[in-house]
Nucleic acid binder design. Structure first.
Length: 483
RNA sequence: CGGGGAGUGGCGCAGCCUGGUUAGCGCGCCUGCCUUGGGAGCAGGAGGUCGUCGGUUCAAAUCCGAUCUCCCCGACCA
């Protein structure tokens, strides 16, 4: 959209200042607001509705793959957290502690969970005795607290909402299979429902979760060229089962430690939706998760209340019956033009305009948020047409994002190009890496880019020279500056 | 946590350097009239202990100190 045509003027243009644009969108679209405590935000109804849709669509998948939901305590005794040292070290700097109960000082401090491996591990040791008790496939929807130094709405807040899955298995193979199964579930969910293309793969040991054997992640490229980790799936090995003593007797009467996994996605996904799809006019929401999929704006001219409004009400009823999330904005105090701009900013995928002219012709005007296309269509089988159109918008948004990701993924074979691209254009950079942490570290220091993933699906076969040290390398990996 | 910038009605800002009596402007909000196919117009009106705490002074939005919060750039994380 050209500058002079911009109707949404309360938002800083994306090209001018991405960070301000991001915060403007969040506040103007009323997704969230800053709370009076550092790093904390209130998720407002419109933003929470998006989260509820995300929850619903993901929860369905989690359950369909054999998991069940449960709820564990918010507090974790310090001694539990201390059992796995690597885990403790990873989280210690950002744990909030409860030291008093009312006036009385506690015997033992309680951590406000930064994640629940410890408390869940402690419970699993009580629940698991036999191979017949396995696998345990539990998920919980919860809030966690991490005292981060730098915060940003949805991307990194002191408290955030997420789901965390925690499973226990009899064998390592089974645990690894579960880890990858969830990784794929996340990929499919994010691409299908959030319309965000991702790359999936394994984290380097430097980037893996504190206490995990292996960490896998789902990464996406935001429209400013920086990468965002959208979800992680960890193969925990037996680290936690050994310290929490989670043992079972197998069918050969041998006592064994279980193999575990944990995995999660958070309200950060909302940040990813904003940054992947948003434009200068504000949000663009994929239809699958949009709280309002269709906004009906009656054109209020003359005796519109007697002529236009009843038809609009009827259309709303019809679309609702067809399970479309529709809203009719019949407020008199705002002009149609104002409403057009307002719902564009809020990212509503489809606008339905209906005025006196349309009623004479038995038609409506539909305007797509994804590409601005305006089409006139008859009212016959409008439910069916809109249902199809929403699906088309969903797919188109994914394709637009995929096209962006492709254009901003660069294969490089020398460090000079690497530095130049990271500096000028950002995006994903794919290059050979020798596997040494020193190269990874040096690249990070010199370019601020990190290895996002070692992709599961090989991009290139064979071997090449490490982009940093030049030694023979067998991993072709994704680099990017990340959030 | 280091470097830079900023907090003034709901939002965006001016005023501060060079203290001075009723703290302005645009948008928004309220009332009325009139309008309504891309954020209408006119008239009237409400709303601010100038982030917070302390200090200097006859006098502080303005000067000094502390503190909190936000934004940007760097080291850690969903």
């Amino acid at each position: 959209m050209k500058k002079e045509e911009r109707l949404v003027t309360q938002i800083t243009p994306k090209s001018e200042d991405f960070s301000r644009w991001y915060v403007d969108v969040i506040r103007r679209a009323e997704l969230a607001d800053y709370a009076p405590m550092k790093g904390m935000m209130v998720i407002r109804p419109y933003g929470y509705a998006i989260w509820e849709n995300i929850q619903q669509l993901l929860d369905r998948r989690i359950k369909a793959s054999g998991h069940v939901n449960a709820y564990f305590p918010l507090f974790i005794p310090e001694s539990f957290l201390k059992k796995e040292m690597e885990h403790l070290k990873g989280f210690a700097p950002e744990v909030a502690w409860v030291t008093h109960g009312g006036q009385e000082e506690l015997e033992e401090r309680l951590a406000v969970r930064p994640t629940s491996e410890a408390i869940i591990g402690a419970m699993y040791s009580k629940w698991i005795q036999s191979w017949r008790d396995l696998p345990i496939l539990i998920n919980q929807w919860a809030n966690v607290v991490r005292w981060e130094k730098v915060t940003r709405p949805f991307l990194r807040t002191t408290e955030f909402l997420w789901q965390e899955g925690h499973t226990a298995h009899a064998t390592e193979e089974e645990a690894r299979e579960e880890t990858l199964k969830i990784l794929n579930l996340y990929r499919e969910f994010i691409e299908t429902e959030l319309a965000i293309p991702v790359v999936v793969g394994k984290k380097t040991s430097r980037e893996k979760f504190a206490g995990a054997l292996e960490t896998y992640s789902v990464e996406a490229l935001m429209s400013d060229g920086r990468a965002l980790q959208m979800g992680t799936s960890h193969h925990l090995g037996q680290h936690f089962s050994r310290v929490f003593n989670i043992r079972f007797e197998d069918s050969n009467q041998n006592l064994q430690y279980v193999w575990q996994t944990s995995w999660g996605v958070s309200t950060r996904l909302i940040g990813a939706i904003i940054m992947s799809h948003g434009d200068d006019s504000g949000l663009r929401l994929p239809p699958h998760i949009a709280p309002i999929q269709v906004i009906i704006v009656p054109i209020s001219i003359g005796r519109w209340k007697e002529t236009v409004l009843p038809v609009a009400v009827d259309l709303e009823r019809r679309l609702m019956a067809a399970k479309i999330r529709v809203k009719l904005d019949s407020r008199e105090e705002y002009t149609p033009g104002w409403k057009f701009a307002e719902y564009e900013m809020r990212g509503v995928p489809l606008r339905l305009e209906i005025g006196p002219k349309d009623i004479n012709q038995q038609q409506v005007v539909l305007v797509r948020r994804d590409n601005g296309e305006k089409l006139t269509t008859s009212m016959d089988n409008l439910e069916g047409k809109i249902t199809n159109l929403l699906e088309e918008i969903q797919k188109n948004m994914f394709n637009q994002a995929l096209e962006f990701q492709r254009r901003n993924t660069h294969d490089v074979d020398n460090y000079e190009d690497f530095k130049k691209i990271i500096e000028d254009r950002r995006g994903f950079i794919r290059a050979w890496w020798c596997g040494q942490e020193t190269c990874e570290e040096s690249i990070k220091e010199e370019t601020a880019a990190t290895i996002r993933v070692i992709p599961l699906e090989k991009v290139k076969e064979g071997k090449g020279n490490c982009v940093y040290c030049g030694q023979l390398a067998s991993e072709y990996v994704y680099f990017a500056r990340a959030y």
